[in-house]
Computed example of a mutant assay.
Amino acid sequence: MPFYELTLITRSLSKADLVKALVRAGNTLLNQGAVIEKVESLGHRDLAYRRIAKQTNEKVYTSNMFLFWTHMSREMRESVDSILRQDLDTVHVGIVTNEEKEPIECNLEELLKPPAERQAVKELREKQKMGHFTRQIVFKRTEKEWRSIPKSYPIAPPRY
């Protein structure tokens, strides 16, 4: 079974109602066959943008946030999502696949090099494909820049 991170945002509730809402959400997960690994409270927070409470149609600016780490099948995910979205105490339900990803190697030294010296840029230049008209445009542009440089003035020798 895939590992999911379920974000549950409830409207502002008293402690007793909040416990009932969490128990309802947990029982929903367990009844559908999910395995709850961990439950974490993110506290009472301000929301990034306002939401609307389902029952009262009030604007919700702050709410309680919780994370459920669960294992469940993909079919269960859809049914759990629809059931929890219908709950009147929840404002938002988000279920995200939490797959283990390979650690990213740091290539800061490569990124700090000038583009002409980077290996990725060299590979792009070697593999680039340019059509006839693109080559013409590039040639005309460089020719125009070359012509714009005054060539009748002598270049002074460097001073030491």
Rank of each mutant, 00 (worst) to 15 (best):
L18G: 02
Y49E: 08
F3I: 11
D46H: 12
N57H: 12
S12F: 09
L30Q: 09
A16K: 14
A34N: 07
K15H: 05
R50M: 11
V19A: 13
Y49I: 05
Q32L: 08
R24P: 06
I36K: 05
Y4G: 02
E5L: 10
S63N: 15
K15Q: 13
S14F: 05
Y4M: 02
N64L: 02
R45F: 03
Q55V: 02
V39W: 00
R51C: 10
A21C: 10
D17W: 07
R50L: 08
G33R: 12
L13C: 06
S63T: 03
N64I: 00
K59N: 11
L30V: 13
V60E: 00
N64T: 09
S63F: 05
L30A: 03
H44Y: 15
V35H: 07
T10P: 13
R24W: 12
R51E: 09
E40M: 02
R11G: 01
K59R: 12
I9T: 11
R11N: 00
A48L: 10
Y49Q: 09
T62L: 06
E40V: 01
L6M: 14
E5W: 08
V39I: 15
K20P: 04
T7Q: 03
I52K: 07
H44G: 07
I9M: 00
V60P: 01
A16Y: 07
F3G: 03
D17M: 12
N27A: 12
L8P: 02
L6W: 03
N57Q: 14
L18R: 01
T28C: 15
